[in-house]
Design a protein around this nucleic acid. Structure first.
Lengths: 247, 247
DNA sequence: AACGATAGATTTGTAGGACAAAAGTCGGAA
DNA sequence: TTCCGACTTTTGTCCTACAAATCTATCGTT
């Protein structure tokens, strides 16, 4: 009864029906996008809850839950008799997953990605220095595992991207700074979609693995300066790919 | 009728009654804190909505709105029949204002601040380089204004902290990277409370202004390398103060 | 006429009830 | 034993009603 290939089909772990299909989630996304794309600029007043309800064919309850979500992301403040007003941009939680997604949907993607890459150039070398100095054996192992994942991925571009993201997150985690990981999650996640493109259009695909391996080597050897250089080389390569795929 | 000094008292711009006094906000904070402090660890199941209502003496409506806020911050996912489950830590939006506040309330503040300072050491020199290369005249003016604010603050520690934060945000803004500002907002905001302490206990209070002035000078001169050095010196000074006030 | 208090209107905030939908659990039938 | 269906629990949505906040306009007083 343990024969392979006979397992019940029972969708393994389920396609995990997304909880984003709920009415209030749709509303939050719908309203959020309209704010990010400038339909309702900072300082402006949104339609009241009843009107949103009509627009989306939803109850006021659902609208309110959506608005509470947006309140939590700093996009809105609501007050009785006034309504919901769009907050100034610097109050927005742009580092929020959803907000960033809505943001990317609305604005020029290339500019956004270049900004992200610039941040990586600042953060990752610094993280590498810290990682080289104080990574734990487990963290090194995770880094090596991610590298192995990239090697195993071969031509499977999706697996490659996943391993790549995993690699960079592991690097940040190895720096043992509690705050660095959240920052990294934001960045790598946003970059994942770009990786999908750059991996298949890499300027020097044959250098991908050696460059990553060099980083691991330096961190294994606990050489901060070597780690910094290795990461910088890696980023240079990505930059080149980005430039090449400009237009 | 335009005589100065005769204006009605009408509380200037109002103490701006905080919108955090609402029931659902209290609930969100109450539940959020319990998650951040480990009462409900990742993977655990929260009491159901009705129970929270009893605990806080609130209606299910209010509880739901609070939970929607927390959903939006990545702390929870809710599903019918299951309940609300605490998400793994790496899904939490730790860079969210509220989450960070709850986090700080729960954990060792000193460790947290050291982590933040470490991030600053990585980010700010890089930002200074970019700022020196491409700050606009307006951004330079804002930087100078913040510096002037620090000079004017003199012994007024509160004003000094505010100007200090303003200075560092202006620095990040001058880098003209869309993503850098949100990162900065998170950091500087969290550091504000520390600044209040370090400013009044500065190791070299007389060096505060010259160090900041040096940064402005380098950025005005568009010298990336000088800017990097000046910011590094500034951070060194803060580090020293932090170390001195260790215990 | 100018000012201030007051009443009204509008919009969000909170409450509570009803039912739908999702997803485990358990028991019974093949 | 295995599979299917009824049952049950919990969130999801809708609805209605009223409270609280606050802007607007009106009216009375000085």
């Amino acid at each position: 009864m343990v024969q392979a290939g006979q397992r019940r089909i029972k969708p393994v772990r389920g396609p995990r029906r997304k909880p984003g299909s709920r009415v209030h989630s749709e509303l939050a996304a719908g309203i959020g996008r309209r704010i990010l794309d400038g339909t309702y600029p900072p300082g402006s007043l949104l339609p009241n809850e009843a009107e949103w309800g009509l627009m989306f064919g939803a109850s006021r309850t659902a609208v309110r839950e959506a608005i509470k979500t947006l309140n939590g992301k700093g996009l809105l403040v609501s007050r009785p008799k006034i309504g919901s007003r769009v907050e100034p941009r610097d109050r927005w939680n742009l580092l929020d997953r959803d907000v960033m997604a809505w943001h990317r949907a609305a604005l020029d993607e290339r500019t956004f990605l270049l900004s992200l890459q610039e941040i990586r150039r600042i953060l990752e070398p610094g993280a590498a220095v810290l990682a080289a100095a104080r990574r734990s054996p487990e963290q090194l192992a995770e880094l090596e595992a991610a590298l192995a994942g990239m090697e195993a991925a071969e031509a499977d571009s999706e697996a490659m991207v996943e391993a790549d993201v995993r690699f960079h997150l592991a690097l940040l985690a190895a720096a043992n700074n509690e705050l660095l990981v959240p920052f990294g999650i934001v960045i790598e996640q946003a970059l994942a979609s770009m990786f999908a493109y750059t991996t298949s259009h890499a300027a020097h695909p044959e250098q991908m693995l050696p460059l990553h391996a060099e980083v691991v080597k330096a961190i294994a050897a606990k050489s901060p300066e070597a780690a910094r250089k290795a990461v910088t080389a890696l980023l240079d390569d990505t930059d080149e790919t980005l430039r090449a795929t400009a237009e």
